[in-house]
Design a protein around this nucleic acid. Structure first.
Lengths: 110, 110
DNA sequence: ACGGAGCGTAAGTGATAGCTTACCGTTCGT
DNA sequence: ACGAACGGTAAGCTATCACTTACGCTCCGT
């Protein structure tokens, strides 16, 4: 979660959603230098969010499901333990004028 | 997601899993001062992760489902769009069905 | 009305984190 | 084997951020 706290790092992961990319390829699509991307990739790799694969001199990175499952599992615990306390305040937690890009569905199947 | 990038802030949210708490109450369980907690709560509130409720002079904070649903929805998109590119990596974890969209992927531009 | 409890805000400080340039190792083509 | 492409690492700088103390406001009890 620390790893995704940085906007640039989230950007990298977003790009990787389209498939694996090389370091220079990523850097060309980002407003930072290539070494910066390298450093971010190291953090992401350490967090289990991306995987590395070598092809000649090129290092290809892709999204690693491991970190995503961990993140998803972490959030899942909130739905289990914290949801109980929502009931207490659920009836008055409505006042929220801070409308943003909220799908407002709130009721999704699992 | 930026809001959860800070360990202290995650700590606050963790505590709030047990139900709503006052600011001083939170500060007493954390290794930081009360104003620090206030500032963190402002960020969390701005991110739609906590709600505020006043009871006399006390400000009670609780987890806001809004931010959690948004976060969960965000991760959900990865399971939809990025899963397809896992290809040969997918077998490592994640119980999912085979996605064989592998048209030679030609990432070999030179 | 007065004093205290409970919080938010302002101002200032120190540390961390992200970015850059420079350098070096590795791999492939010719 | 030589040179270029590709990328990780080191060192250094800057800005952001989390924290602290000091102060002011609001609400309640007496």
């Amino acid at each position: 979660m620390d790893a995704l706290g940085d906007p640039t790092r989230r950007n990298v992961v977003e790009i990787l959603r389209g498939g694996e990319r090389s370091v220079g390829d990523l850097a060309s699509e980002l407003p930072v230098s290539r070494p910066a991307v390298s450093q971010h990739l190291r953090v992401l790799k350490g967090a289990g969010l991306v995987t590395e694969r070598r092809d000649g001199t090129r290092h290809l990175y892709a999204i690693d499901p491991t970190g995503l499952t961990a993140l998803r599992a972490y959030l899942e615990t909130f739905w289990d333990t914290a949801l109980g306390s929502f009931k207490e305040v659920a009836d008055r937690s409505v006042p929220d004028r801070d409308r943003r890009t909220d799908p407002a569905d709130g009721r999704r199947k699992r």
